[in-house]
């Protein structure tokens, strides 16, 4: 029936609903029918990765403008006037329009910030972020030091800049962590681009990227729907121990005295962000280390 040379468009007509009632009922009683139904039903649930037509158009516009410039040469020298006007504008800008908004969290704090377009940013402990509210429409850029989780509304390019590199997206959910020598980006939904000094990669949903100074950048795949710290748990995956200590210190405002131990050993595990005793016990007992929280509640001494 289906390899029949005479009716080589039978299935096309079926897909289109062009079969006569007799043909259709004959096909429906055929054992092959359900297999074809299943293929069609499966194919109809497929979709292509989203396309941001507006962003693509903007992209073309910016390219168009650069190609304009090549053809047009200024006839009159107006740049001296422009320069004066521009510097006046800059001075005014500095004094009047400096509308940078910044947010910072202290030890153990979390802060949810709603950005001007409704995108969300959740800051983890000991982190700082700032953005320009006035120009948000044209320039969705947040500068970050520390760790934050972003849920970005669709629209123009959204960029998080850090000392270690930039992460930019069109509309998605992702986590960025940037410490002194540590840079990590995790994409939970959509697609993000990570640009750092050494690297330029695209992360799709469920993919993560990490770059620790002096080691090769790593990529891995994850299953979580959002970062664990959102639900008050810090989690670590194959990471030098001193970063884990840093996080303990940031979450609980303590100092960990690590004189006698090797903080470069690799640690994988979690600890809660709302119970210091459980947190310390979880980390140190898995490492087989003895520890003591001193009377002042601020210093942890580790004994090997």
């Amino acid at each position: 029936m289906f390899d029949n040379k005479k009716d080589d468009i039978f299935l096309s007509r079926w897909v289109n609903g062009d079969l006569s009632p007799e043909e259709l009922s004959e096909f429906q009683s055929h054992p092959e029918y359900e297999y074809y139904m299943k293929i069609l039903a499966g194919a109809d649930t497929l979709d292509l990765a989203e396309y941001d037509v507006d962003a693509a158009l903007r992209n073309i516009k910016s390219n168009k403008q650069t190609s304009y410039k090549k053809n047009t040469k200024p006839v009159i020298k107006i740049w001296p006037y422009l320069a004066v006007a521009a510097s006046v504008a800059v001075i005014f800008g500095l004094f009047l329009f400096n509308s940078n908004d910044s947010f910072a969290t202290s030890y153990g704090e979390q802060l949810a910030v709603t950005l001007p377009d409704g995108s969300e940013m959740i800051l983890n402990a000991k982190s700082e972020a700032s953005f320009d509210e006035k120009n948000w429409k044209t320039n969705r850029t947040v500068s970050l030091n520390g760790e934050a989780y972003f849920k970005v509304k669709k629209g123009s390019k959204f960029t998080v800049t850090t000392k270690n590199g930039d992460v930019s997206v069109l509309g998605t959910e992702f986590n960025v962590q940037s410490q002194a020598s540590f840079f990590e980006a995790v994409c939970y939904e959509g697609k993000v681009r990570v640009t750092s000094n050494q690297d330029n990669t695209i992360l799709t949903a469920g993919k993560a990227y990490r770059n620790i100074t002096n080691t090769a950048p790593e990529h891995w795949t994850l299953v979580a729907q959002e970062p664990s710290w959102i639900t008050n748990t810090s989690s670590f995956r194959s990471i030098p121990l001193h970063y884990v200590f840093k996080e303990l210190e940031d979450q609980y405002n303590i100092t960990i005295n690590t004189k006698n131990i090797d903080t470069d050993i690799i640690y994988t595990g979690t600890f809660p962000n709302n119970n210091i005793n459980v947190a310390l016990k979880t980390v140190f007992s898995t490492l087989g280390l003895q520890y003591q929280l001193l009377q002042n509640g601020k210093t942890v001494v580790v004994e090997n």
Binding site: F2, I9, L11, S12, V15, E32, Y35, Y36, I39, L40
Partner: peptide, 21 residues
Amino acid sequence: VKAIEKLMHKALVTLRKKIGN
């Protein structure tokens, strides 16, 4: 249009063979 219909028919037959039962 006929050429497209033929290709569509072939595509379904090919998929059917590939996927098996």
